[in-house]
Every structure is written in structure tokens, then in C-alpha cells.
Amino acid sequence: MMSLDRADEVVHVGDEVAVRRVSTSTVPVADRYAYWQESMSSSLYPVRLSPAGPVNRGKRSDFHADFLRVDAGPAKIARGVLDPVRSEITPAAARQRSGDTVQIMLHEGGKILLESRQGRQVLTGRTLTVQSDDEPAVQTHTERVPMVLLSVEAARLSVPMAALRSSMFVPHPVDGMLRVLVLGAAETARHSAGRLDPVGMTSYLSGVAELVLRTLVGHQTEHLGTVEVRRQQVRELVRARFHDPHLTTTVVAEAVGVSVRRLHQLFAGGPTVAVQIRTARLERAVELLSDPLWAAQPVSVVAQRCGFLDHSQFSRAFRQHTGTTPRSFRA
């Protein structure tokens, strides 16, 4: 298989964000399928490609695909078009994956045959599909298809995988807002390299994925009230309100509508809610003390911003968490 370095056009490469144009027209005809497969497998996850019918007047090996891909750490987005092709995540390949990647595909048209645990389905027109890297599936594009691929690490999402599974491998009709959201993310990522903060870009793409997935999953009754969803509600609440010095286990229990005893049961065997709050505060403190924009702010201000009212309490907790004092850490 050929090296991607021979064909990838580097549009922009920064410390944490890379923009690349991946086009089969830049490689010899005989290498085009191999090149596209290597590009897909290295940028997303391993797939097996094969022809899906006559391409370019019977020249089956003359495969055309042209994508612009933006890699922002654990979040990636690509937009482009490709000729008819069959892509497969084999059962063997799926077993080797851990389900740590979720991919959202916006199909802008054409006809696609999708075979998965949900059965065989035909996708036409504009649709959204969701899949993970640990489930076998076959997609056959029978026409030249414009599309957007947005992938993100599952760990960056607050939507539980258990809630996503039933929404995977089924076509979701695309309304105007979802389409604009996904296309807008692709265009923003494409034009922002070198201008916008790279860490912010990762968070932005992850946030777009979060919004799309939450919209697709909605408030399905079969997911409400389950243990994992309750845990996720707690984690989201802690992430959103850890800076509140009055956030306690009791406050969290009341906010999610369970008793304190039930809350302890939900996290039995793992970090308690109190520990999660404390950890979230200290991790944010580490970020702020490492941020040059906060270098002129007193440690006491950082402590208050992270939910600590008592400076000495903050110093003790920070030392236990990092092994050093806040001032020494910043130095």
C-alpha cells in the first residue's frame, strides 16, 4: 500500500490542527483504491473498500474522491465527494476496536445501501447516519455522493453510548437546521486553521457532534431513568457547576431528582460525587494556572474561580492532587 505522504496536499498544519486535501486525482490510476483506503483507515478507522460498479466509463480502477479533512486532535471533520464504492467494517476489524469513536455522516444525496445489525436499508436524499467503530457494517454508495464525515472520541461526549446504540445505522431525515449545523462546522474548521484557538476548535467540533447526537436521540422514553443516563446527568451537572462553591452531593441529588442514598448507590464502586466535584475543580485549577492569560491573576482568584472559598483548603487539595503547591506549579 502506498504512503499517504506521496499524495496528501497539506493545506495547513499547526500544533494541534491540521488541514489536508485528500484527492485520488493526485496519484496514479492503479494506486487510487489503495490510496483512498489507506487515507480512510488512517484518518477514521480501518475499512475495506471495493468497487461498487462501473466507474468513469468502465475504468473500474479509475476511482475519484476529493475530500478536505480537518484533524483537531480527538475530533475530525471532512467534506467532499466520492465515486461509487463499497466500504466495510468487517466483524474481525470491529472486534479489535473499543467503541471509542463515534462518527456522524451527512449524506447530501445519492443512493446508499446500508447493511448492519439493523438490517438492510436504502438511503436516498439528504440523511444523517451515526455509527461507532466497534460494529460491523457495509455501506455501498451506488452513485457519486457528496458528504460530510464528523468523528469524535466517545469520551468527549456526554451522551451515553447506551443511548446512542439504538440510533445507529438508521437513516435520520435532515432538517434545515441540522444540515446547516454540520455544513457550517465543516466550513468553519476549513477556514479557521491558524486563526482560531486549536483547543477551542476541538471543543467546537465535539460540541457540534454533541448537539447533533442529542437532537437525534431526543428524549426517547426507553433511555430515561436508566442507571447510565442518571450517572451521565450527574456528570454533566458536575461539569457545568463545579465552579459553584455551594455545589454538594445533596444539591446534585436534588437537581437530578434522586435521594442522596440513591445517588451514592449509582456510583458505588467508583468515585463518589463529592470526589468528582473536587476533581473537576482541581483539574480546572491546573488548566488556569497553566494558562498564560491567567498568569497575572492571584492564586486566590484562581481558587475562587474553581469553587474554593478557602485559600488554604485549596492549597492543601491542590498539593494532594498534583504533589506541589499552586505557586510552585505556576513557577
Results as ranks from 00 to 15, higher is better:
Val275Leu: 08
Arg319Met: 11
Val275Cys: 05
Gly270Cys: 05
Thr142His: 11
Thr24Lys: 07
Pro292Asn: 01
Arg231Gly: 05
Ala18Glu: 12
Ala52Gln: 00
Ala274Leu: 12
Glu254Ile: 04
Ala92Lys: 13
Ala94Met: 02
Pro51Trp: 00
Arg235Leu: 15
Gln103Asn: 04
Leu49Ile: 06
Pro198Ser: 09
Glu16Gly: 05
Glu210Trp: 05
Asp244Gln: 13
Val27Pro: 00
Gln233Ser: 10
Ser87Lys: 08
Arg330Tyr: 08
Ser300Arg: 15
His321Lys: 08
Ser203Gly: 05
Ala285Val: 01
Gln139Glu: 10
Gly125Ala: 03
Thr129Asn: 00
Thr322Met: 11
Arg95Gln: 13
Pro54Gly: 09
Ile89Trp: 01
Ile77Lys: 04
Tyr33Trp: 15
Arg20Gly: 02
Leu196Cys: 07
Phe242Met: 00
Arg190Cys: 01
Ala18Thr: 13
Trp36Phe: 15
Ala162Ser: 14
Ala78Cys: 03
Arg316Phe: 06
Leu44Pro: 01
Gly257Trp: 10
Val170Asp: 02
Phe169Asp: 12
Ser166Tyr: 09
Val299Met: 06
Gly53Trp: 00
Phe267His: 06
Ser167Val: 01
Ala30Leu: 06
Ser312Phe: 09
Ala303Glu: 08
Leu123Gly: 04
Val229Met: 14
Leu224Pro: 03
Leu282His: 12
Glu16Cys: 03
Leu205Gln: 10
Ala253Tyr: 07
Arg327Tyr: 10
Val152Arg: 00
Ala189Gln: 09
Glu135Trp: 00
Glu236Phe: 00
Val180Ala: 15
Phe329Tyr: 15
Gly73Glu: 07
Ser98His: 11
Glu236Arg: 12
Leu211Asn: 09
Leu205Pro: 10
Gln121Lys: 13
Arg231Ser: 01
Val208Cys: 04
His246Arg: 15
Ser151Thr: 00
Ile89Met: 11
Glu254Asp: 15
Ala137Gly: 06
Leu247Trp: 10
Pro51Ala: 05
Gly184Tyr: 10
Glu135Met: 09
Ser167Arg: 10
Ala72Gly: 09
Val138Met: 12
Leu181Trp: 09
Ala274Thr: 15
Ile89Gln: 06
